[in-house]
Nucleic acid binder design. Structure first.
Lengths: 183, 183
DNA sequence: CTTAGACCTTCCAGTTTTGACATGTCAATC
DNA sequence: GATTGACATGTCAAAACTGGAAGGTCTAAG
């Protein structure tokens, strides 16, 4: 149950936020780490409230509800951080395709990897640019947000390099018999 | 719907396999790419059969059913490879924790990253050892399986290095005022 | 002969995720 | 005064995923 802790964690760090606020955070700062839809966020807020981990601290203009973490909520976040060990999710649609690329003509397969390398390069550059632009504060969210952003940059860089390597590997196999016994 | 294409893809490549065979493949060769439980695999086989993408080609000893792809199935796999563009799944429990590590004492946070780095190092070494051990054939599954295995190795290596870097960053912030103006 | 272990499938109950649809308020602009 | 757009919440059905339980068959070793 990670969505629950993502929501809870944001509320604890922000010390008060509405579902709408959280949605924006999911879209922006948590985008590379955990995604969530509206229905998930609002649903989870209701559950967290029912379980006494958060509470409605104030109500604002448009039916806005500002949630704040209870002591039980802060304890639970801490417990999750310390005790629970996440199993790394091993699911990757891009890689799944690579696995079956042998079903295409070699030239198409290599084109796919070249495309992939280009896309990853762009993403890496995008994050690198972001790193330059953003002025970081001294708060926790800034510090740890910076760490995850750097992770994203490294991830895309790794991926780009791998795609280039893989493309070269395919090239080697596609036309190998050229210099096998050329003295 | 990627599970569907993972199952379909394996059946196409193997040119005939039972649910049991597929399960083993998911556990071994597809482990770093896509995971699936028994109920998912058998369920998907039923659906694929109903949709005419695969068919029971033979029945074996223990109620074993050997599935084979139909022409429609092969077309669908190809269509998926060429047309559909996967959206990279952005969900990572380990990173999610890092995002909230500011809730712990700095020393605990650093310990978490050190642990993480160690775990990633072990995994990387595990895959590296596997690369040495395995004797690769000349078939497609071998070639492309080799590519994804190398991806896994690079992924864990990147992750280890990042965790070490992040730990150092935290250390810098934990005790920064030591040599600011030490001539 | 018997028994352990690999082989093999089916079903299910509960949870999570997805992707809408529905509803309404407030602030600023035209 | 009307319209647009950001703000804000809520509900739902369908799909996907989890984690088993249950039941049965063949083979080889002891």
């Amino acid at each position: 149950m990670s969505l629950r802790h993502a929501v809870l964690g944001l509320i604890v760090e922000l010390d008060g936020a509405s579902g709408y606020d959280l949605m924006k955070l999911f879209e922006i700062s948590l985008a590379n780490v955990w995604t969530a839809t509206q229905s998930q966020v609002y649903g989870e807020l209701a559950k967290l409230t029912a379980d006494g981990l958060i509470e409605v601290a104030a109500e604002g203009p448009r039916g806005r509800k500002e949630y704040r973490a209870t002591d039980a909520g802060r304890d639970e976040l801490r417990r999750w951080l310390v005790e629970e060990q996440p199993r790394p999710a091993r699911r990757d649609g891009v890689l799944l395709k690579v696995f079956f690329l042998g079903q295409l003509e070699p030239e198409r397969a290599r084109a796919y990897l070249r495309d992939s390398a280009a896309t990853m390069g762009e993403r890496r550059d995008g994050l690198a640019a972001l790193q330059q632009e953003v002025t970081w504060g001294d708060d926790n969210l800034s510090l740890y947000g910076r760490l995850t952003l750097e992770y994203g940059r490294r991830f895309f860089a790794m991926r780009k390099e791998w795609a280039e390597w893989a493309e070269a590997e395919l090239a080697r196999h596609a036309a190998p018999p050229e210099d096998a016994d050329r003295a």
